[in-house]
Write a protein that binds this DNA or RNA. Structure first.
Length: 214
DNA sequence: ATCCCGAGGG
DNA sequence: CCCTCTGGAT
């Protein structure tokens, strides 16, 4: 676990991220708050490319909780069988849809507590929805952010909660809201798990990892 | 700590 | 073959 980078280094790192990509977006396809929740829930331990492939047809016939309930668990499974963990995910999406209809008037709630009470929605998924849909500077720590946070020292921590705190406590306030997407895209395309592409890295000169592996 | 679990890459 | 992918519930 790399040591926490200092404030000025972090400021320079995010200045560069912002310069290259002022408005970073996620890559999970969705058409409304409901399909966003479902897409993020489906994305656990799966690639967004794989999730998008499955939800393309699914969201054409079930882009509301009511329609998802009409489709049913078995019908849903047929659409998401190509995604990992599909049995648990199908059960959760059906249960979650029923709760949205019965307790939230078919709408997606805007509080973390309400989101996290939904089956299949934990802290990470709730934070993604809060950030992307409700504009809250919530920090969802996924596999990429946990890895590169520790590898680079941008936001190190022994578990995801510690990494989330490292982000909130150390990343300059003006970059908090978009930090999630800058970090995840950097982790996905450059600072990859297996073969990090250090020569193509925007912050190579500020990273403690590269010099050890050259 | 363990289970869930298919697709894609190396 | 093995590893990784925007985790969550038990």
């Amino acid at each position: 676990m790399a040591a926490q980078l200092d404030y000025l280094t972090l400021k320079e790192i995010f200045r560069r991220f912002h310069e290259v990509e002022p408005e970073p977006k996620g890559e999970l396809d969705h058409t409304n708050a409901y399909t966003l929740v479902v897409a993020v829930a489906l994305s656990a331990q799966a690639t967004d490319v794989g999730v998008n492939k499955a939800t393309k047809a699914l969201f054409k016939i079930a882009d509301t909780p009511e329609k998802m309930l009409a489709l049913g668990e078995e019908g849903l499974i047929e659409h998401i069988k190509t995604i990992g963990l599909y049995r648990n995910k199908a059960k959760n999406v059906i249960k979650l849809s029923r709760i949205l209809v019965e307790q939230y008037g078919g709408e997606v709630p805007s509080s973390r507590a309400a989101l996290q009470s939904l089956p299949g929605v934990g802290r990470k998924t709730a934070n993604v929805v809060l950030n992307m849909w409700w504009g809250v500077p919530a920090q969802a720590v996924d596999t990429h952010i946990f890895r590169i946070g520790n590898r680079t020292g941008i936001c190190p921590g022994k578990d995801v909660d510690a990494v989330e705190r490292a982000i909130e406590d150390n990343i300059p306030a003006e970059y908090q809201h978009h930090a999630h997407h800058w970090l995840i895209l950097h982790g996905r395309y450059v600072c990859k798990a297996r073969k990090p592409n250090c020569p193509a890295c925007l912050i190579r000169d500020l990273c403690p990892f590269d010099e050890k592996t050259l």
